[in-house]
């Protein structure tokens, strides 16, 4: 799994490539926590290149969502693939996270 970040105004887009699972959860958690602790709590995770998600990986997203909201921001998902979306739906994540078709929409959702 690879994680890269890009600031777009007041929003930080975190692009994740690969699998969000128990074997990559630690690295992903470190990356997301680093952003939030660095004052970047308005996050968009670009999931276009995430091809797999497991329960341990999803728990990392949940932790990031809670941290970001606690810091006054949010953690939003963009471009989730159908297979990953199915896992998110079954796990209840689609009822607590905001999802957008693409990163542009997700970034714009934060407003100016």
């Amino acid at each position: 799994m690879e994680v890269t970040t890009k600031d777009m105004g007041t929003v930080t887009v975190v692009t994740i490539v690969g699998s969000v699972d128990g074997l990559t959860a630690g690295a992903l958690q470190t990356a997301l926590e680093g952003q939030i602790q660095g004052g970047k709590a308005r996050l968009v995770a670009d999931f276009a290149a995430v091809d797999y998600a497991s329960s341990a990986g999803l728990r990392t997203l949940l932790a990031a969502m809670k941290e970001a909201r606690r810091a006054g921001g949010d953690f939003r998902l963009a471009a989730v693939r159908p297979d990953v979306l199915r896992v998110l739906e079954l796990s209840g994540f689609t009822s607590i996270l905001k999802l957008y078709p693409g990163t542009d929409e997700a970034v714009a959702s934060y407003g100016p």
């Binding site: 128990g22 497991s54 329960s55 999803l58 896992v87 079954l90 209840g92």
Partner: peptide, 18 residues
């Protein structure tokens, strides 16, 4: 199904693979 699975998914110490 979804509500029970969501709870177990979050609370398990390791992996739940649906």
């Amino acid at each position: 199904l979804k509500s029970r699975f969501a709870f177990h998914n979050i609370t398990h110490h390791s992996e739940v693979i649906p």
